[in-house]
Computed example of a mutant assay.
Amino acid sequence: MATTGTASAPLTAVPEQPHSPAPPEPAPSGTLISSVQRAVRLLETVAGHGAGAPAKQLARETGLALPTTYHLLRTLVHEGYLRRDKGLFFLGEAAERLSSSGAQQKRRITVADTLARWRDAIGGPVYYAVYRDGEIELVCVADTPGHPAVAEWADFRETGHAHAIGQCLLSQLDEDARRDHLHRYPVRPVTPYTVRDEHSLLRRLERMRRMEPVIERQEYVLGAVCAAIPVTIGTTAATVAVSLPAHQADRLLPAARRLQAEMSRLVGSLTLSISI
Rank of each mutant, 00 (worst) to 15 (best):
A2F: 08
G5W: 10
E16W: 02
E16L: 11
Q17H: 11
A22K: 14
A22G: 12
P28Y: 08
V40P: 04
R41D: 14
L43R: 08
V46T: 05
G52D: 04
T62S: 04
L64F: 09
A65E: 11
P67R: 15
T69G: 00
H71G: 08
R74T: 10
R74Y: 03
T75I: 07
L76E: 06
G80R: 03
R83I: 09
E93D: 15
L98Y: 05
A103F: 02
A103S: 13
Q104Y: 05
D113H: 09
R117Y: 02
E137T: 10
D143R: 02
H147D: 13
A154Y: 13
C168A: 15
Q172P: 02
A177Q: 15
R184L: 12
Y185Q: 12
V187Y: 02
V187I: 15
T194W: 03
T194R: 06
L201V: 01
L202H: 03
R209I: 10
R209H: 09
R209Q: 15
E216Y: 00
L222Q: 11
L222T: 11
A224F: 10
A224M: 06
V225G: 06
P230R: 00
T235G: 12
T235W: 06
T239G: 00
P245D: 13
R251H: 12
L266Q: 13
I274M: 08
I274Q: 10
S275Y: 05
